[in-house]
Design a binder for these strands. Structure first.
Lengths: 145, 145
DNA sequence: CTAGATGTAACAAGAATAGTTACAACTAAA
DNA sequence: TTTAGTTGTAACTATTCTTGTTACATCTAG
């Protein structure tokens, strides 16, 4: 059980755009060299971020910009943009035996708890704004260079 | 990103053992028919639960029993028994570019937040005891049969 | 017109999950 | 002591997801 690196790459990409896009044209190749992966990986992720209305991409001439200020983009927005947990976070065994009292009731026993768990995780991510990471980035740059 | 069904199957299995093991011999085949999967799947999961000291298994003659009272077994215990998040919950892109201020600092920016996320997840699961699910199970059986 | 981008398709390799059959080893009971 | 029923595990398959690659049609600013 691993959360795809698309998530951290997406955050990295958003920070790149936030940091550079006023001065430079931030292309997929540019981000790719900062993240250090193939540009196509970045394009696929940027495509998802665009679909989620988090960034604008200039087609043809190239370059991405943020669609909103960083204090109104949460990690949950980014998470949802690049991962799909539509049908729930948990793989649940299908067809438990209905003749057994446990098989019959396992969903009633677990569904609430697992759903609450999912909500908690989403709530945490929704409270962290890109602007906070931006601040940390500026601090780190100031302290470690 | 899905959490393996081993987790819900493990919970189901633990509830089976809790519910039946005083009266009956709870074998992998028995649990398998309640969960409705191949007995080998169950044996593999029971093996992990045993390694985590959550159950005892009688080899040869067969049958499993809980190693502790249900109010001292948490969902986190079960979760850790059947999934491995040893090297972190997140796949992080390796080798970000050190020449770029963002690539250079991305770990300083993200590590704390992602670690806190993991802790939150573990904390939630650690607070839910098998006994609570047992209670829910008894309630469900009383109400829906 | 063209150089440099984007958006995608197509493909491949690798890992994890989920499932199966088969079988050696163990143990309780007939 | 044999035997029936279990456990533990190996070996294999299929499927899905992730990550990565090359290739190329399409777009656009200069």
């Amino acid at each position: 059980m691993k959360i795809t690196s698309r998530f951290t790459i997406a955050i990295h990409s958003m920070l790149c755009i936030a940091y550079y896009s006023e001065e430079y044209k931030v292309t997929s190749t540019f981000i790719a060299s900062s993240v250090n992966v193939n540009p196509v990986i970045i394009r696929r992720i940027l495509g998802k971020l665009k679909k989620a209305n988090l960034i604008h991409i200039k087609s043809g001439s190239g370059g991405s910009t943020l669609a909103k200020p960083t204090n109104s983009i949460s990690l949950l927005d980014i998470f949802h943009a690049v991962t799909s947990i539509d049908e729930g976070l948990f793989n649940f065994h299908t067809n438990p035996c209905q003749a057994c009292p446990i098989g019959q009731n396992i969903h009633r026993v677990l569904d609430d708890t697992l759903h609450e768990f999912t909500l908690l995780l989403e709530q945490y991510l929704s409270q962290i704004m890109l602007s906070q990471l931006e601040d940390k980035l500026h601090q780190s740059i100031a302290n470690y260079t």
